[in-house]
């Protein structure tokens, strides 16, 4: 037991968590304040550019399409990945039939599909949607299959012995696999953000990746930096959001296995 109430401990924790980031930002601010290097503008100028660029019409024109594509593709990959992964994990014949094929597509890097889809589908939104979805699909699918496969036999037999309806049994199996499904979904989130930005860098007329590349090509350096910061912050925010959802959804699992939250 440490001295001090929960409030003091919370403050200490916040101090520990915020101390280093604050110090680093302050260091960047001070060190770059007098910078005359055009590639490394002062942080103050970048922050000004941030407000000018992203808090105006650009947000609706570029950030919203990016997020829309990301959300739609990621959502579709989740549905397809969980359904197909469930089938593959549940039925050994399906697993045997697909395993060499899956082994191939798992290691084929998603960005390589961009030129392929560019030729096959064209330069529209569909190509970007498909390529983001493909990047996200494999980790979700494979983790779901592994998770479903690893469900405790005894639990399944108990459910069968109690003559639970088939649908309930499927639901229970899926629920038992959720920790692994979430692990795949987290991996997929990071990949889909990367593929989103790359696809917009290569072929787009809007979106975050496109705009940042435009700024860089027209030597609008502070604006470019502000875009880079925005993409970084977006990656961070989505990861945190995911963590929140995961913690809620897997509360039963943590209790079940007795695992405490990491401090």
């Amino acid at each position: 037991m440490r001295a001090g109430g929960p409030l003091a401990r919370g403050a200490a924790g916040a101090g520990l968590a915020l101390g280093l980031p604050a110090a680093l930002l302050a260091l960047w601010w001070v060190a770059s304040a007098g910078s005359t290097n055009i590639f490394l503008p002062p942080l103050r100028v970048i922050v000004e550019a941030f407000g000018r660029v992203w808090l105006s019409g650009t947000f609706a024109d570029d950030v919203v399409p990016s997020l829309w594509r990301l959300g739609a593709s990621y959502g579709a990959a989740l549905v397809v990945g969980v359904v197909a992964g469930y089938a593959i994990g549940r039925w050994p014949v399906a697993r045997a039939l697909t395993s060499p094929l899956l082994a191939y597509f798992r290691v084929l890097p998603a960005p390589v599909m961009i030129p392929v889809l560019l030729v096959a589908v064209g330069i529209g939104d569909a190509t970007k949607l498909i390529v983001i979805g493909l990047g996200a699909l494999w980790p979700i699918l494979l983790n779901t299959a592994d998770g479903v496969r690893a469900v405790d036999e005894v639990q399944l037999e108990t459910a069968a012995a109690f003559r639970l309806p088939v649908w309930t049994r499927h639901r229970l199996t899926l629920r038992a696999a959720t920790p692994q499904i979430f692990a795949g979904a987290r991996q997929a989130l990071g990949i889909s953000i990367i593929v989103m930005v790359v696809s917009e860098m290569l072929m787009s007329t809007d979106g975050l990746g496109f705009t940042v590349t435009q700024f860089q090509r027209s030597f609008a350096i502070p604006e470019m930096w502000s875009g880079v910061l925005l993409i970084g912050a977006l990656g961070f925010a989505l990861a945190k959001l995911f963590e929140l959802v995961e913690r809620r959804a897997l509360r039963w699992h943590r209790g079940h296995t007795g695992r405490e939250e990491p401090s």
């Binding site: 990071g190 953000i193 990367i194 930005v197 790359v198 860098m201 940042v212 590349t213 700024f215 860089q216 470019m224 875009g227 880079v228 993409i231 970084g232 990656g235 961070f236 989505l238 990861a239």
Partner: peptide
């Protein structure tokens, strides 16, 4: 979680 490709520009 900061995607490494933001380094490119």
């Amino acid at each position: 979680p900061v995607p490494s490709i933001v380094l490119i520009p």
